[in-house]
């Protein structure tokens, strides 16, 4: 059965977030041959539309309105409802991002529908669309189906493979005008606290520090390694509690759950709560002085040694590689 599916694309720092393309790929599976329509909001929406088509969207609908330049649940909720009223989709896919997590439950409620959030895989099996999602912070997984209403899902960044980019693809881009009114919450200011560029949840490489990092300064070698690898820096709860870094970097059962291609754990003992946040990473490297540390049990590769010796050596090796290539 083919379905029309809409996806919401997100712009961050002047470019489309990768999860927008992952959402299109998930939408293609849900659509089963039906049309995939990507939605983009904000005054500059038009300029990003073609990229969504190159990545597999059949069409793009924009709502260009200055009240949509910054996300609010009321503003985006009204714009999306206008799109949904005109497109009447049978499926909806958002990224499981700060925006998607905030907005999807509101819209699902407006549509009187269910919502499968934080999906890491979509498959068609026996006439059903089956969605896999982590539960207990990745200590287990569940498979879910939608039994009633619109098929509405949010997809976790970094998990659904994107379709191949193809500039030969073309599709219509249309603007829908929507009346955005009565915003009950107003964003007064955005305070940038994360480093430019790489977001922890979307990073392909994460270099994370634990108590073994010993101080805020101790994170410096980790930052240098992350920079060389084009990755992001994370932390264990221990490091956050000790005040070495901000809680926004925390990875674990409380904090962020991440699935990068490469996770380098430095001076992290590997408490079960931390493992819950990162054990589904594709490749895990552990660097720890204590050869008995729990982290070695989930690591693919381990080095028993002082992180302050190992990490700078690693950075140097990767730098050499970069120069050669």
């Amino acid at each position: 059965m083919s379905r029309k599916v809409i996806t919401l694309a997100e712009i961050r720092d002047g470019s489309l977030r990768n999860v927008s393309f992952e959402a299109i790929a998930a939408a293609k599976t849900i659509a089963q041959g039906g049309e995939v329509v990507a939605v983009l909001l904000g005054e500059s929406a038009q300029s990003y539309a073609n990229e969504l088509i190159y990545y597999g969207a059949d069409r793009v609908v924009t709502v260009e309105n200055e009240k949509l330049n910054h996300y609010t649940s009321d503003g985006y909720g009204q714009a999306l409802m206008a799109v949904i009223d005109s497109e009447k989709p049978e499926g909806i896919v958002f990224g499981h991002t700060a925006l998607g997590k905030d907005l999807a439950p509101k819209l699902a409620t407006k549509l009187n529908s269910g919502l499968v959030s934080d999906v890491v895989a979509v498959e068609e099996a026996g006439g059903n669309l089956v969605f896999t999602r982590p539960i207990y912070s990745g200590k287990a997984f569940e498979k879910k189906i939608v039994t009633d209403g619109v098929i509405f899902v949010t997809v976790r960044p970094n998990n659904i493979p994107v379709l191949e980019r193809d500039e030969a693809r073309s599709g219509n881009v249309t603007n829908l005008s929507a009346n955005i009114k009565d915003l009950r919450t107003i964003v007064k200011e955005v305070v940038r606290k994360t480093a430019e560029g790489v977001d922890l949840s979307e990073a392909k490489v994460i270099v994370a520090g634990g108590r073994g990092v010993k101080s805020a300064d101790g994170f410096k070698p980790l930052q240098e390694l992350a920079e060389v690898l084009g990755g992001a820096v994370g932390a264990s709860r221990g490091a956050c509690d000790a005040g070495y870094c901000d809680y926004s970097l925390q990875i674990g059962q409380t904090g962020k759950v991440v699935t990068p291609d490469l996770y380098i754990a430095c001076g992290i003992s590997g408490a079960i709560q931390h493992l819950a946040g990162m054990s589904n990473s594709k490749v895990i490297v552990a660097i720890n002085k204590d050869s008995e540390a729990n982290i070695f049990k989930v690591a693919d590769y381990g080095i028993v040694g002082d992180l302050f010796e190992v990490v700078p050596l690693l950075t140097e090796e990767f730098k050499k590689l970069k120069v050669r290539s």
Partner: peptide, 28 residues
């Protein structure tokens, strides 16, 4: 409910990783 759980499963068990040996510089 509008959704239904049809299966719950544990992630595949990881095989023991490789602990590197030798001089630190060589391990790196």
């Amino acid at each position: 409910a509008k959704t239904k759980t049809i299966e719950v499963f544990l992630p595949p068990k990881k095989e023991a990783g490789k602990i590197l040996q030798g001089e630190l510089a060589d391990q790196v």
